[in-house]
Amino acid sequence: MSKNVKVYSTSTCHFCIRAKQFLEDNNIEFENIDISTNPEKAQEMVQKTGQMGVPVLDIEGEIIIGFDKDKITQALGL
């Protein structure tokens, strides 16, 4: 069963690009939310995480701040 994955990102952030690339490499489908063009979603991310750094991954409600490969691998059960 594939998990519901959201990535909060900005287009200029290198670690966002890498996080998305990592998901693609592992054939994980995800919803990319570009918060630089979507202030409402930016607010949602800040509220969810209590912080303002990107990327943020929401994997079935499990929040991972930053491109933390080990945590992402674990959360996805890769």
Binding site: T10, T12, C13, H14, F15, C16, I35, S36, P39, A42, V46, M52, G53, V54
Partner: peptide, 12 residues
């Protein structure tokens, strides 16, 4: 923050 390139867009 220490990275305007990464986090700048959050401060619109």
């Amino acid at each position: 923050t220490y990275c305007a390139t990464c986090d700048g867009p959050l401060f619109a």
